[in-house]
Protein backbone atom coordinates (compact mmCIF):
# COMPACT_ATOMS: atom_id res chain seq x y z
CA UNK A 1 0.00 0.00 0.00
CA UNK A 2 1.30 3.46 -0.85
CA UNK A 3 2.55 5.28 2.24
CA UNK A 4 1.41 8.88 2.29
CA UNK A 5 2.51 11.35 4.96
CA UNK A 6 1.64 15.03 5.32
CA UNK A 7 4.11 15.43 8.20
CA UNK A 8 5.09 12.99 10.93
CA UNK A 9 4.88 9.25 10.55
CA UNK A 10 6.26 8.30 13.98
CA UNK A 11 6.08 9.44 17.61
CA UNK A 12 8.74 6.95 18.73
CA UNK A 13 11.38 9.58 19.57
CA UNK A 14 9.51 12.46 21.20
CA UNK A 15 12.70 14.27 22.13
CA UNK A 16 13.44 14.69 18.43
CA UNK A 17 10.01 15.96 17.46
CA UNK A 18 9.62 19.68 16.80
CA UNK A 19 6.66 21.03 14.80
CA UNK A 20 3.79 18.55 14.73
CA UNK A 21 1.40 20.07 12.23
CA UNK A 22 1.00 18.80 8.68
CA UNK A 23 2.55 20.51 5.67
CA UNK A 24 5.38 22.06 7.67
CA UNK A 25 7.28 24.47 5.44
CA UNK A 26 4.15 25.91 3.86
CA UNK A 27 3.43 28.30 6.74
CA UNK A 28 3.75 31.28 4.38
CA UNK A 29 0.87 29.88 2.39
CA UNK A 30 -1.29 29.52 5.50
CA UNK A 31 -0.55 33.16 6.33
CA UNK A 32 -1.47 34.38 2.84
CA UNK A 33 -4.73 32.44 2.99
CA UNK A 34 -5.56 33.80 6.45
CA UNK A 35 -4.87 37.40 5.37
CA UNK A 36 -7.12 37.00 2.33
CA UNK A 37 -9.93 35.51 4.43
CA UNK A 38 -9.58 38.21 7.08
CA UNK A 39 -9.56 41.18 4.70
CA UNK A 40 -12.21 39.56 2.55
CA UNK A 41 -14.48 39.32 5.57
CA UNK A 42 -14.22 43.06 6.19
CA UNK A 43 -15.08 43.86 2.58
CA UNK A 44 -17.99 41.44 2.35
CA UNK A 45 -19.35 42.51 5.74
CA UNK A 46 -19.24 46.20 4.80
CA UNK A 47 -21.01 45.54 1.49
CA UNK A 48 -23.70 43.34 3.00
CA UNK A 49 -24.32 45.77 5.83
CA UNK A 50 -24.57 48.73 3.46
CA UNK A 51 -27.06 46.84 1.30
CA UNK A 52 -29.17 45.87 4.32
CA UNK A 53 -29.21 49.44 5.58
CA UNK A 54 -30.09 50.84 2.20
CA UNK A 55 -33.01 48.44 2.02
CA UNK A 56 -34.12 49.42 5.48
CA UNK A 57 -33.97 53.14 4.69
CA UNK A 58 -36.02 52.66 1.52
CA UNK A 59 -38.53 50.62 3.48
CA UNK A 60 -38.82 53.23 6.21
CA UNK A 61 -39.22 56.02 3.67
CA UNK A 62 -42.00 54.08 2.06
CA UNK A 63 -43.89 53.26 5.23
CA UNK A 64 -42.92 56.35 7.21
CA UNK A 65 -40.25 56.43 9.87
CA UNK A 66 -42.80 57.31 12.50
CA UNK A 67 -44.67 54.13 11.84
CA UNK A 68 -41.51 52.02 11.82
CA UNK A 69 -40.38 53.52 15.12
CA UNK A 70 -43.78 53.14 16.69
CA UNK A 71 -44.11 49.47 15.94
CA UNK A 72 -40.50 48.37 15.54
CA UNK A 73 -40.06 45.33 13.39
CA UNK A 74 -43.73 44.47 13.54
CA UNK A 75 -44.38 47.56 11.42
CA UNK A 76 -42.98 45.60 8.51
CA UNK A 77 -45.93 43.27 8.79
CA UNK A 78 -48.52 45.96 9.38
CA UNK A 79 -51.22 46.72 6.88
CA UNK A 80 -52.37 50.30 6.37
CA UNK A 81 -55.70 49.40 7.96
CA UNK A 82 -54.01 48.05 11.08
CA UNK A 83 -51.87 51.14 11.36
CA UNK A 84 -54.92 53.40 11.07
CA UNK A 85 -56.71 51.37 13.72
CA UNK A 86 -53.75 51.59 16.07
CA UNK A 87 -53.58 55.36 15.62
CA UNK A 88 -57.25 55.72 16.34
CA UNK A 89 -57.02 53.61 19.45
CA UNK A 90 -53.96 55.47 20.75
CA UNK A 91 -55.82 58.76 20.31
CA UNK A 92 -58.91 57.48 22.05
CA UNK A 93 -59.87 59.55 25.13
CA UNK A 94 -59.31 56.68 27.57
CA UNK A 95 -55.88 55.60 26.31
CA UNK A 96 -53.06 56.08 28.76
CA UNK A 97 -50.20 58.33 27.59
CA UNK A 98 -47.35 56.24 26.23
CA UNK A 99 -49.40 53.12 25.76
CA UNK A 100 -49.50 51.34 22.45
CA UNK A 101 -52.97 50.21 23.36
CA UNK A 102 -54.68 47.36 21.65
CA UNK A 103 -52.36 46.96 18.72
CA UNK A 104 -51.87 43.42 17.51
CA UNK A 105 -49.51 42.88 14.62
CA UNK A 106 -50.62 40.52 11.90
CA UNK A 107 -48.94 37.14 12.04
Amino acid sequence: MLAVSTGLDSFSNPEDIGPMYPFEGLEWLFVVLAVVLWLGWHILQARAETRQQDEAVVHYEKMGLDRAMYHGSSALETTDEEWAAAQAQAKAPDSEPGTKAGYTPSS
Partner: peptide, 28 residues
Protein backbone atom coordinates in the same frame (compact mmCIF):
# COMPACT_ATOMS: atom_id res chain seq x y z
CA UNK B 1 -25.83 53.66 10.77
CA UNK B 2 -28.25 55.89 8.81
CA UNK B 3 -30.43 58.09 11.00
CA UNK B 4 -33.62 56.24 10.08
CA UNK B 5 -32.08 52.86 10.93
CA UNK B 6 -30.86 54.18 14.27
CA UNK B 7 -34.26 55.60 15.06
CA UNK B 8 -36.21 52.50 14.09
CA UNK B 9 -33.74 50.28 15.92
CA UNK B 10 -30.74 48.39 14.65
CA UNK B 11 -32.56 45.08 14.93
CA UNK B 12 -35.82 46.24 13.38
CA UNK B 13 -35.35 45.59 9.70
CA UNK B 14 -33.34 42.39 9.56
CA UNK B 15 -33.71 40.42 12.75
CA UNK B 16 -36.84 41.74 14.37
CA UNK B 17 -37.91 42.54 17.86
CA UNK B 18 -36.09 40.98 20.78
CA UNK B 19 -39.16 40.74 22.97
CA UNK B 20 -42.12 40.60 20.60
CA UNK B 21 -44.60 39.85 23.38
CA UNK B 22 -43.67 42.77 25.62
CA UNK B 23 -43.80 45.72 23.29
CA UNK B 24 -46.88 47.56 24.38
CA UNK B 25 -45.42 50.67 25.94
CA UNK B 26 -43.27 53.63 24.94
CA UNK B 27 -40.89 55.13 27.44
CA UNK B 28 -40.77 58.88 27.75
Amino acid sequence: VPRAVEAAGLDAHDVGDNYPYFGDRDTE
